[in-house]
Design a protein around this nucleic acid. Structure first.
Lengths: 123, 123
DNA sequence: TTTATATTTCGATAATACTCGAAACATGGA
DNA sequence: TCCATGTTTCGAGTATTATCGAAATATAAA
């Protein structure tokens, strides 16, 4: 994951409403939720909801699938996984900032670590 | 970490310039970097740099300490750790989206998991 | 005390993002 | 076909954020 895309994902989650939407979709599981259900749960005007869903969609954190008359949105777990991998690989000095448990290899195989994350600071 | 503060941290990192600043500070280690060095490395006008440093400071992701005539900024690893813990605790369905390695308890003791993260989906 | 350097604050401008009513666009049922 | 419902797009208004020159502040050296 390159830093532009990481910044875009972070920005997408960096808005209280969108973060709430994303959390709701995560909780809903792979099935996801109808757009309407999300709006109802969070008390959002349809246009506002659509705006934020589109934003999250555009950066790849969620996806929508049409099902009869409804559109179900669901969280894209792998996108979130990549984002977390980016943060641990690029934003943790020797992983010193990580919860101990997370102190190990990441899915991204620590692609070209930028100097940090040599791994020796794991407890 | 409550979601407002999480959203604020995410938004702070959700800007290419600030993300680059933060990464540079992480790479620099606990010593950090003089503000000027950051600006030089990234080619930022002093006022612009100051604006972004203040933003990152305000949300607690970095801190500055005066040292003689300079101000050294350094990344706050624990703040980053809390952010990552928030994401893994609140934005990962049963941690299915996590890099395998990170599939375990987090520092935050999974405070009141919101329904996700029962842990059974760990590989 | 004067001068030089480092950084921030101020102020103005430009750009971007957010909200939401109203209208348009599906899709499926009557 | 017509109607009802769910969702998006449009358009306009408002608010927030980003950029950066210039001025102000702080610290230290001459």
């Amino acid at each position: 994951m390159e830093t532009l895309s990481a910044a875009e994902s972070l920005a997408a989650l960096g808005h209280e409403t969108r973060l709430a939407i994303f959390r709701a979709l995560v909780q809903a599981g792979p099935e996801g939720l109808k757009a309407g259900a999300v709006g109802e749960a969070l008390g959002l005007a349809p246009a506002t909801l659509s705006f934020h869903l589109a934003h999250l969609s555009r950066v790849g954190l969620i996806r929508g699938r049409q099902e009869s008359r409804f559109i179900f949105y669901s969280a894209d777990y792998s996108a979130m996984g990549e984002l977390i991998a980016f943060l641990t690989d690029n934003c943790c000095q020797g992983k010193a900032c990580l919860p101990v448990s997370a102190c190990a290899e990441t899915t991204e195989k620590s692609s070209a670590p930028t100097g940090a994350c040599e791994g020796e600071s794991c407890v």
